[in-house]
Design a protein around this nucleic acid. Structure first.
Length: 506
RNA sequence: CGGGGUGUGGCUCAGCUUGGCAGAGCGCUGCGUUCGGGACGCAGAGGUCGUGGGUUCAAAUCCCGCCACCCCGACCA
């Protein structure tokens, strides 16, 4: 954790710390104002109270607010800008994998859900159901989609007739609703935004290979190379599998408090949905065959992961490849020629391909603006003031390391893209080092339980097993995924040498 | 669904024990001085104290009901 430049300020006496304190000293019942104290930190330090820090970041970086209905979320422009960048990067990878975007309805007939036994069982507790519409009670209740396997299955059945129609590779960007009891902005909300892919294939091998391809080429690649976030990839245990899937693959990332966050999943659905919705095709030989389907998704939860993997006590840190604003040019004050110089530099940076913004709000103090950009996590800040300018220089500040240096204005723009790549690499290296330092290799269940208090534990799956999984569950520790010793995704959970990664999770 | 707690300007809360003019900090508006690390001064705006009833000369404060939200124990991207 990078220390703040400000000395750690003594925090105001905690109300309640001394009986029913009122935050003030009291002499004979007369409230006395607290003595002058050092300025409080902008954010609750992570080490003091991580959940509080997370909420502070959401508010101060203007990412999101709670919606009026319990568990709902308002995504503010800065937060939505991050989502739009995520969408652009993920969407490009999905299309590169051959899938096309489409859109299916928000409303699903309740009867669809009931066609796949495990699927209904898994989702019924969290369904929002419409029973009245147009002023009348509906004959058949309508479910607000918690995911779209069922409606899409219905249409796949209609569109797939021949082996020539396969594979059918679809994706949609949509909102879904899952009535959650315990909610946290971005991590678990009753409504969230995501991308859900749905595909149908002629063979099990083809479906399995595609689910894995999406997992590696879309999710893992995006998370590592754009989010600068190392992820463990592997199979879910039967216990953790998606309702209705025959196999679930997951990307698991470690947050700075040591807890795991599932960042994206890819499912092999076998023929479960094909049977339920009658997705069949005529083979080359002329026989009727049942298709094999997959589904895969990633959501606005990734924004929560971004915050908790890269954030520090000064706020968010956005990796340059993701950042909608990669660099901000700050006019320190409205002095002779400063605005002009800053504006010219901004143009040069833009011409050099940098997503740059000019901050010429000189009616707000420098310190306030600098703090705001740090809270928002803009990777590079370039300060343009009269003092530097007199020497033909500006001050360049990296958000990741807080390192500051002077640089000549002439030729600066050409060096910024390289600096951004350096920052991207440094952030991935830092996050990877953190993950590795907080992943313990253990040999017994007791050791795994202990290690999971502060991070991840790797334990042979043969040692843990279903019984060990159940035992750890009593302490809210779950198997995040099972992987091969080399970190790749096993074909079966029974492969010899398989490793289970266990942790507490969000 | 079981246990604990809280409802007072936009936000965080004090005031309630012991009834007596509705407060503070932050934020917001205006003016001025500032501007290289969350600026400062002055002047302002903003609340039927969750809600319905009761007690009282008088209720944010006491009593009863209701509602909402938050925190801790079984499912989930």
């Amino acid at each position: 954790m990078v220390p703040s430049w400000r000395s750690p300020a003594p925090v105001a006496p905690e109300p309640g710390a001394a009986g029913a304190g009122n935050g003030f000293g009291a002499v004979d019942g007369v409230p006395v104002p607290s003595p002058p104290m050092a300025k409080a930190p902008v954010l609750t330090p992570q080490a003091d109270d991580f959940p509080r820090w997370y909420q502070d970041v959401l508010a101060k970086a203007e990412l999101a607010d709670n919606g009026p209905v319990r568990g709902t979320m308002v995504i503010r422009p800065y937060g939505y800008g991050i989502w739009e960048r995520m969408q652009a990067e993920v969407d490009a990878r999905i299309k590169a994998a051959g899938a096309e975007n489409a859109y299916f309805p928000l409303f699903i007939p309740q009867s669809y859900l009931t066609r796949e036994a495990e699927h209904v069982e898994g989702f019924s507790p969290e369904l929002a159901v419409v029973t009245h519409a147009g002023g009348k009670e509906l004959d058949e209740p309508i479910v607000v989609r918690p995911t779209s396997e069922t409606v899409i299955g219905e249409f796949m059945a209609k569109w797939v007739n021949s082996h020539r129609d396969l594979p059918l590779l679809l994706n949609q960007w949509a909102n879904v609703v899952r009535w959650e009891l315990r909610t946290r902005l971005f991590l678990r909300t009753s409504e969230f935004l995501w991308q859900e892919g749905h595909t149908a294939h002629a063979t099990e091998e083809d479906a399995r290979a595609y689910a894995l391809r999406i997992h590696l080429d879309v999710y893992q690649d995006f998370m590592v190379n754009v989010l600068a976030m190392p992820v463990y990839i592997g199979r879910k245990t039967k216990q953790e599998r998606f309702a209705g899937a025959t196999n679930t693959l997951a990307c698991e990332a470690i947050m700075r408090d040591g807890k795991a966050l599932q960042m994206g999943t890819s499912h092999e659905l076998g023929q479960n949905f094909a049977k339920a919705f009658d997705i069949t095709y005529q083979s080359v030989e002329g026989t009727q065959e049942m298709a094999w389907t997959t589904s895969w998704g990633s959501s606005t939860r990734m924004i929560g992961g971004l915050i908790m993997v890269h954030g520090d006590d000064k706020g968010l840190r956005v990796p340059p490849r993701l950042a909608a604003t990669q660099a901000v040019v700050m006019v320190i004050r409205d002095d002779d020629g400063v605005v002009e110089a800053a504006s010219a530099l901004t143009d040069e940076l833009r011409a050099a391909g940098v997503r740059v913004r000019l901050d010429d709000r000189t009616d707000t103090s420098f310190g306030r603006r600098a703090t705001d950009w740090e809270l928002k996590g803009v990777p590079v800040r370039i300060e343009v003031g009269p003092r530097d300018l007199a020497n033909g220089e500006v001050t360049v500040v990296r958000r990741d390391s807080s390192e500051k240096h002077q640089a000549a204005v002439a030729g600066l723009a050409a060096t910024v893209p390289g600096l951004l790549e350096d920052i991207q690499a440094a952030m991935l290296a830092e996050a990877t080092a953190f993950r590795d330092a907080n992943t313990a290799e253990v040999a017994t269940i007791d050791e795994a339980r202990a290690a999971a208090q502060t991070g991840f534990a790797k334990i042979p799956w043969a040692t843990l097993g279903v019984a060990g999984e159940a035992e750890l569950a009593k302490d809210a520790i779950t198997v995040r995924c099972i992987q091969r010793p080399d970190g790749s995704v096993p074909t079966s959970e029974d492969e010899p040498g398989n490793i289970a990664i266990v942790a507490r999770s969000y």
